[in-house]
């Protein structure tokens, strides 16, 4: 970061500003949360059991996998291994995000910020322009996401989906629209970041296309492997001094 010392360090602040930035992303959690509530009900979970799970686990894919395995009568230990492996990708995200938190962040705030971190909130937060993200800003950003996930689970269990099927199906694109909305502006003038992104895309497509890989590697593991290799490529090939116009440092 030495080459940046001349520039002013910027920091994203404000609980309310965090909420404002997190809210469009929270909308994308609605269909998934409903679907989880419905699936949990079908699997025989009580309302409070699935709401409790959504609150303390707060990991979409893992919860779907867990409930699915419960229905199949899978032993608890096996469910935990599957869920643990699926979530190892967060090691990578948390490591990257840890460099964007002010050093004087209090223990509990830090704990809560990272406890609530998801794939989506990580990408949204880490592509903010500012060098650092204040704890209040991040807690604000995560708040609507966590709330929507828990509330949507509740509503899905209690009332089933309120959305018509065709609209619900089209809403599957929502999260990807947000991802593209984040990605495009930050890579259009940044060839290095674009290269890393395209490598990650190609590798994860490759894993999906090769049957013997696709059978063995779940989504979580695939993200960790492919994103890890792509970022490693970036670090090796573009290791010379970074341009100042790069957004992140």
């Amino acid at each position: 970061m030495t080459e940046r010392l001349k520039l002013e360090t910027t920091i994203a602040k404000g609980f309310l500003r965090g909420i404002k930035i997190g809210t469009p992303l929270a909308i994308t959690y609605i269909p998934g949360a409903f679907a989880f509530g419905i699936l949990a009900k079908t699997a025989g979970l009580t309302l409070w059991e699935c709401v409790f799970m959504s609150f303390i686990v707060f990991a979409g894919a893992s919860q779907f996998v867990a409930v699915n395995l419960i229905t199949l009568g899978t032993p608890m230990a096996e469910i935990l291994v599957a869920v643990g492996v699926l979530n190892m990708r967060h090691l990578l995200m948390s490591s990257s995000m840890s460099k964007r938190i002010p050093l004087n962040t209090r223990f509990l705030e830090k704990f809560w910020i990272f406890f609530e971190m998801t794939d989506e909130s990580f990408t949204l937060a880490s592509l903010q322009k500012e060098d650092y993200l204040s704890p209040k800003f991040l807690i604000g950003l995560n708040f609507p996401l966590h709330l929507t996930w828990v509330l949507g689970t509740f509503l899905g269990w209690a009332g089933g989906s309120a959305l018509p099927d065709s609209l619900q199906e089209s809403m599957g694109i929502a999260i990807y629209a947000i991802f593209i909305g984040l990605l495009v502006p930050s890579v259009r003038d940044n060839v290095k970041a674009l290269t890393v992104t395209v490598i990650a895309m190609s590798l994860s497509t490759y894993i999906k296309l090769v049957p013997c890989l696709a059978e063995r590697i779940n989504k979580g593991l695939s993200i960790m492997i492919t994103a890890g290799i792509a970022a490693l490529f970036g670090a090796i090939v573009f290791s010379k001094k970074k341009n100042k116009d790069e957004v992140l440092s």
């Binding site: 990708r89 990605l183 895309m201 994103a227 792509a230 970036g234 670090a235």
Partner: peptide, 20 residues
Amino acid sequence: KSFLHYVPYAILGSLIFPDI
């Protein structure tokens, strides 16, 4: 540090494609 700098872009790439 450089590796961690590229992680968000890489994660986004893996998340978007081919699932989109």
